[in-house]
């Protein structure tokens, strides 16, 4: 199997590797995949509560080079986007950008799942911190 230059570049120089405080109210954490399947991605976002803009993103990935590259790329793409814009990122765009072969499409799916999971986690925290009265208005 051969890797595209972009996959190799992300593998050799992964962007935004690291971890953020998952207990922080502004941080959303997505942990997707399973060790038995050979892929686990942790993607974290730090969101500005006033603007809903993702100001920072970090990842750590257990997986093949394509999984590492997909999650590295995902952190680059979500940074600077609003939460709603980030939710629009599709796995097919990751496949295209990294020129992933068909057997590696699941890596891109996992990266999209990780973005959604991180945003979901952040949203849940936002709901929880809102005053009870606001929540019942709906």
């Amino acid at each position: 199997m051969s890797y595209s230059d972009k996959v190799i570049d992300h593998y050799n120089n992964p962007r935004n590797v690291g971890s953020m405080d998952k207990s922080s109210a502004d941080v959303g954490t997505g942990l997707v995949g399973a060790p038995e399947c050979g892929d686990v991605m942790k993607l974290q976002i730090k969101v500005n509560p006033q603007t809903n803009v993702i100001e920072d993103a970090k990842f750590k990935t257990f997986g093949c080079g394509s999984a590492i590259a997909s999650s590295s790329l995902a952190t680059e793409w979500v940074k600077g986007k609003t939460v709603d814009q980030a939710l629009e990122i599709k796995n097919t765009e990751i496949v295209k950008e990294l020129a992933l072969p068909p057997v590696k499409i699941h890596c891109s799916v996992l990266a999209e799942d990780a973005i959604r999971a991180a945003i979901g986690d952040w949203k849940k925290k936002q709901e929880a911190t809102k005053p009870a009265a606001v929540q019942t208005v709906q």
């Binding site: 997707v32 060790p35 038995e36 399947c37 991605m41 750590k60 257990f62 699941h106 996992l110 799942d113």
Partner: peptide, 25 residues
């Protein structure tokens, strides 16, 4: 350093007990 599993193991998380989001491919 890039592995979330290594980080979790070092934090004392028992990976066998984690409920993973995807249990199948």
């Amino acid at each position: 350093e890039l592995s979330p599993l290594y980080e979790m193991a070092k934090e004392g998380v028992d990976l066998k007990n984690v409920k993973w989001a995807a249990e199948a491919h």
